[in-house]
């Protein structure tokens, strides 16, 4: 990306004197530099709206939250400096460690299942000769549905009175009758994650399918002539061929797992008794409902730091592998 931008800045500099020199000879030199200064001002002016709205909404508040993290700010009255109190409090806050654990589980599942099943499904899709368009459309639609609707669909299906359990009960299968997927301490988190996986997995499948289609068919053919078999083709040709897209999809899932808000918020509200609580919910509760904004920014900065480190590690590993 950065490389092409250098190319594009270099291009006008190289072509300009040529064009100008051809059209109007000597006296154009001072005029052009004035024009250049003007064009730099125009460029800045073009960039201004985007950067202004960004600084107002994201950049400014993000930087100010570092300052607020050392205060007892409640969001409204002027904050008082309290040093590292908030940071110390976080380390001994059981709720913080509990959401960190839940987010870690969330992240791991959201990376492993959609990536592996997505690759598998995409590989199968690329092998069939008819109907892949229809399959892709069906797989992609769950990702398209908005989160409130996805959550509602699954709440219906998982409810013992109105969903799958009730349907099974009417044909005599009763072992699901007393299973409260969203109300049980053990099942709440896996269920929330499962619903999220359901809505996410089709996206990885369709995304990986598009990637596999860009792999050079000659490579696949060569592998087939070598008689590597289906698994050999999958492991030695397809996976290496789309590695950048796999890394992208994994980073995408990591971020989604760390920052997840919608599914737990709608399905369980973090309950029962914090069993499916996640960092985003805790931060909103602490700072906006509980008015402990100073402490909330500490939790938020920690989450930011963790996601920064994770993205950094993924980028580092990828660069290292490329070299």
């Amino acid at each position: 990306m950065i490389d092409t931008s250098y190319a594009s800045t270099a291009a006008p500099a190289a072509s300009d004197p040529h064009v100008a020199g051809r059209r109007r000879p000597p006296k154009s030199r001072p005029r052009r530099s004035r024009l250049q200064r003007k064009s730099r001002r125009v460029a800045l002016l073009f960039f201004l709206p985007a950067i202004a709205v960004n600084l107002l909404v994201i950049g400014g508040p993000a930087v100010s939250s570092i300052g607020y993290s050392f205060t007892d700010w409640n969001g409204i009255s002027p904050p008082n400096f309290v040093g590292l109190d908030n940071w110390q409090r976080m380390l001994t806050d059981a709720a913080f460690w509990s959401v960190m654990r839940n987010n870690a589980i969330y992240l791991v599942v959201l990376v492993i299942i959609p990536t592996s099943l997505g690759l598998f499904g995409a590989f199968l899709l690329a092998r069939i000769r008819r109907g892949s368009t229809v399959f892709r459309a069906i797989f992609f639609i769950p990702f398209l549905l908005i989160s409130v609707v996805v959550a509602q669909i699954w709440r219906n299906l998982l409810s013992p009175d109105t969903g799958i359990a009730a349907a099974l009960d009417s044909i005599g299968i009763t072992w699901l009758n007393d299973v409260y997927f969203l109300g049980s301490q053990e099942l709440a988190l896996p269920t929330v994650i499962g619903v999220h996986v359901w809505s996410f997995i089709g996206f990885t499948m369709v995304f990986f399918y598009a990637a596999i289609k860009t792999v050079d068919p000659a490579l696949i053919e060569a592998a087939r002539l070598d008689g590597v078999g289906v698994w050999g083709e999958f492991w030695h040709v397809v996976i290496p061929g789309i590695r950048p897209m796999i890394v992208f999809s994994i980073s995408f899932a990591v971020i989604a797992g760390l920052l997840v808000y919608d599914m737990p918020r709608i399905l369980t509200g973090g309950g029962p008794a914090g069993a499916s609580d996640v960092a985003a919910l805790l931060i909103n509760r602490t700072s906006i409902v509980g008015r402990e904004a100073g402490y909330g920014t500490v939790l938020a900065l920690t989450l930011t730091l963790i996601s920064g480190v994770v993205i950094g590690v993924i980028t580092y590993l990828r660069r290292k592998e490329e070299n």
């Binding site: 730099r40 460029a43 508040p61 993000a62 971020i255 938020a300 930011t304 996601s307």
Partner: peptide, 30 residues
């Protein structure tokens, strides 16, 4: 265009994209 500080602006955009919502939602709300 001949935008000054081009690579700085571009880096800013990349950082902003990877910044989690939580890092600014609290001060933004107030």
């Amino acid at each position: 265009l001949d935008l000054p500080f081009k690579s700085a602006f571009q880096t800013y955009l990349f950082v902003i994209i990877s910044l989690p919502v939580q890092s600014f939602i609290v001060p933004l709300f107030f």
